[in-house]
């Protein structure tokens, strides 16, 4: 008997594809958001930071439920998308991506926010006095100095997306090949009494999570002497 059935492999592949897409998009959108949060003196900073942190404490089913209402075919957004000739997001891969991005948002934005904040203003001021403009300063000073934060964000964002259950169930359904991710597949196996199969997949996730965390701590540069 093979270790993983074709359906299991399909779920595994879908999960990896989902996590990679979500992580890449979150890094792309989360970087400017985290930069803004770390640098702004706006009174909106705290409310925005709170919204970003919300998925940390909200039950995933609540998040999924609201997303279902928000994105469903009868919502304003759903009707707008239908009018534009786009299919509704629930029960599609794109829907899973959107939901997962919201769910994993704090895991990507918060490490970036901390990394940008810990740079402090001084290196950026020094760069400005060496003729670097704002974008130049961001690319040549902030990004390289925040690199450990990016590693943490990527690993946490990826691992957290791989492990989610409630949101994907609510928004994705459990459609083989389209929205049936690893965690749902494990649930199915357990429901059907297929403990061996559930065991295999669970072990996969366990090993993956451990490896991800280990890699993160190895990739992080050793604590340097303070400047």
């Amino acid at each position: 008997m093979p270790l993983l059935s074709p359906q299991d492999l399909q779920a595994l592949w879908l999960t990896l594809r989902l996590a990679a897409t979500v992580t890449a998009l979150l890094l792309l959108l989360g970087t400017p958001l985290a930069w803004w949060m770390a640098r702004t003196r706006s009174r909106w900073q705290r409310p925005v930071a709170t919204v970003v942190a919300l998925p940390l404490v909200l039950p995933p089913t609540v998040l999924g439920f609201y997303l279902l209402l928000l994105l469903g075919p009868h919502s304003v957004l759903g009707r707008l998308m239908a009018a534009l000739g786009l299919s509704a997001l629930p029960f599609t891969f794109a829907g899973l991506v959107v939901a997962s991005m919201l769910y994993s948002l704090p895991f990507v934005v918060q490490p970036l926010h901390n990394a940008f904040e810990s740079i402090g203003v001084r290196p950026l001021e020094a760069a400005a006095c060496l003729r670097a403009g704002p974008l130049d300063r961001f690319l040549s000073v902030a990004l390289p100095q925040a690199m450990p934060g990016f590693v943490t964000s990527a690993v946490l964002g990826f691992a957290h997306t791989v492990g989610e259950f409630g949101v994907v169930l609510m928004i994705g359904g459990n459609i083989p090949g389209r929205t049936r991710v690893l965690s749902l597949r494990i649930y199915d196996h357990v429901e059907a009494g297929q403990y061996h199969e559930a065991h295999m997949l669970s072990l996969c996730l366990l090993v993956f999570s451990f490896s991800a965390l280990l890699a993160m701590s190895l990739l992080r540069p050793r604590r340097r002497r303070h400047d």
Partner: peptide, 11 residues
């Protein structure tokens, strides 16, 4: 500009 602490780029 030279700051009180050297403020070199650590990277």
């Amino acid at each position: 500009y030279v700051f009180q602490e050297a403020s070199l780029f650590a990277h």
